[in-house]
Design a protein around this nucleic acid. Structure first.
Lengths: 115, 115
DNA sequence: TCCGTACTCAAGCATCTGCTTTATAAAGTG
DNA sequence: CACTTTATAAAGCAGATGCTTGAGTACGGA
């Protein structure tokens, strides 16, 4: 449960997600595995450029790769996506707990004022 | 509900979160508002450097700033955190739907094989 | 074996980032 | 008023990032 993700992993993860092309690729891979060529198709940039994006995604742990004939199919690794989600959720949780405490504090203050 | 976050907003958001110092600052701000000086305290780097990190966070929408005496207190803006969470959750959802379909497909295939 | 397909490697280049230092501004305090 | 505190602005710099082109590698087909 306690997702122990290192700071370096989070660096790599959020860096990977900070580029539109890479987010597109991740979104594409949620639908199904794909080769570099297939992933490169929609873009004006060279396949080499897409290959480099894929490497960034691979290093972040967001995708893994296999081998099939002469292709290197890409597959999404949802565990990495979970790590990113966990960090964000933890922050949201802490913040909302603080807000809850603030609310109840204000309620108490209000109650006193009402008397 | 349909969090319509632009690609540029997501770029800024994930870029902001891709740095450990900035993630630390966000985590610190979940606990409570703070001034630049307070946020800079734990770090070896100059206050100017922290001020620049804060600007990145502000541009991403993750924090907002007020004025109080000669300080510029920073406050977390959880809506931005939600935008980031939404993007990740959307990907996770699509992926798991695909997995569900795959599972039920495999179940059907298995059933046929059992006969 | 020669050829095409799918990809990676490597070098180059413009731009962006994360920091520094110096200088400046704005708001209290003596 | 001078002086301190808090913060921003601007310039400079090393290193990272996102692309390019050109060259290679690995696999399969005729």
């Amino acid at each position: 449960m306690g997702a122990t993700t290192t700071d370096q992993q989070l660096d790599a993860l959020f860096t990977a997600l900070s580029d539109r092309t890479r987010r597109d690729i991740v979104a594409r891979l949620t639908i199904g595995d794909a080769t570099v060529k297939e992933l490169a198709e929609p873009y004006a940039m060279s396949m080499q450029a897409v290959s480099q994006h894929i490497r960034v995604l691979e290093r972040s742990g967001l995708i893994s790769r296999g081998r099939h004939r002469q292709t290197r199919p890409c597959r999404l690794e949802p565990a990495a996506l979970e790590s990113a989600a966990s960090w964000v959720e933890e922050s949201r949780r802490t913040w909302s707990e603080r807000m809850d405490r603030l609310d109840s504090h204000l309620a108490r203050v209000q109650k006193r004022a009402d008397r």
